[in-house]
């Protein structure tokens, strides 16, 4: 039985795909057999972040419409053995997805995998609802700004009403808060919402906090999930997040402003 985790946010551009890629990679690095599915049909990005865009032949829509088998569409990650990617279609739109089709794909993956990570599109429409419908757990990605927090709040409402677990009255989806692009420096100066305020409004458990980092942009452009960059703060923060998802107790890091010493100021400090 696989655990189905949806990575969602409501708002676009907060780091859903980056987080889905980094978390799926982290789970696979810990020996968990993991599949990561791009639900953003029409605006596919996950393959770029995972660095497998040149190996895409078939996609999720092909599988759902019976034009290809699931094994033909799944791309094996080059860096980690246990990781597979199911890309989205770039030429179709989200209407090509059906609830039954998605269910069949997830049921098939369920037998062979430990974790299925669903990378949700932005918004609250069909694509996003299909990505969350079958989930067991949800990672709600939020930036420290008011509009992102409000959209996350909206998504949390949908998670508790428009999902299979909610409709069947089963145990509710386990909700995790993942704060990305956190900059303690700018929180101190009042430019960004602080951690406590976000947690108070959303009232769900924090699973991770990813600092604003150059390593993330670099990783995206290179097509190497940032978890592989274990020297970077963001890479370490995603590893911590994965550990917490697997119910390990890891103390929170990178949430406090660190004053730079003389040496690190002179030499540019540790990699950010």
């Amino acid at each position: 039985m696989a655990k189905i985790i949806v990575v969602t946010s409501g708002k676009g551009g907060v780091g859903k795909t980056t987080s889905a890629a980094a978390i799926a990679t982290g789970l696979a690095l810990r020996g968990q057999k993991t599949a990561v599915i791009d639900f953003d049909v029409g605006l596919r990005n996950l393959d770029l972040i995972m660095g497998c865009e040149r190996r895409v032949v078939y996609d999720l829509v092909n599988v759902i419409q019976g034009e290809a088998g699931l094994n033909q569409a799944l791309i094996r990650d080059k860096r980690v053995d246990n990781l597979h990617i199911l890309p989205a279609s770039q030429t179709r739109d989200k209407d090509a997805l059906t609830l039954e089709g998605v269910e069949t794909v997830l049921n098939t993956l369920n037998k062979d995998f430990d974790y299925i990570v669903c990378d949700s599109p932005a918004g609250i429409e069909r694509g996003a609802q299909l990505a969350m419908y079958f989930a067991d757990e949800a990672i709600v990605v939020t930036n420290p700004e008011v509009s992102s927090v409000r959209d996350s709040d909206r998504i949390l409402g949908l998670l508790s009403s428009k999902t299979r677990r909610a409709e069947r009255g089963e145990e509710p989806i386990k909700e995790h808060l993942l704060i990305t692009r956190y900059n303690p420096n700018r929180v101190d100066s009042g430019d960004m919402l602080n951690l406590e305020d976000i947690q108070e409004i959303l009232a769900i458990k924090l699973v991770g906090l990813i600092p604003e980092s150059e390593a993330v942009l670099r990783a995206s452009n290179q097509g190497v999930p940032v978890t592989h960059d274990d020297q970077s703060d963001a890479g370490q923060a995603y590893s911590d997040t994965v550990a917490r998802l697997m119910e390990e107790d890891v103390p929170l890091r990178f949430h406090q402003y660190q004053k730079k010493g003389l040496l690190s100021r002179m030499f540019g400090g540790n990699r950010r």
């Binding site: 409000r150 709040d153 909206r154 949390l156 409402g157 949908l158 009403s161 009232a203």
Partner: peptide, 11 residues
């Protein structure tokens, strides 16, 4: 009516 929990945006 008693509602327990957070009433979220859009609800």
């Amino acid at each position: 009516r008693i509602y327990r929990g957070t009433v979220r945006s859009g609800q």
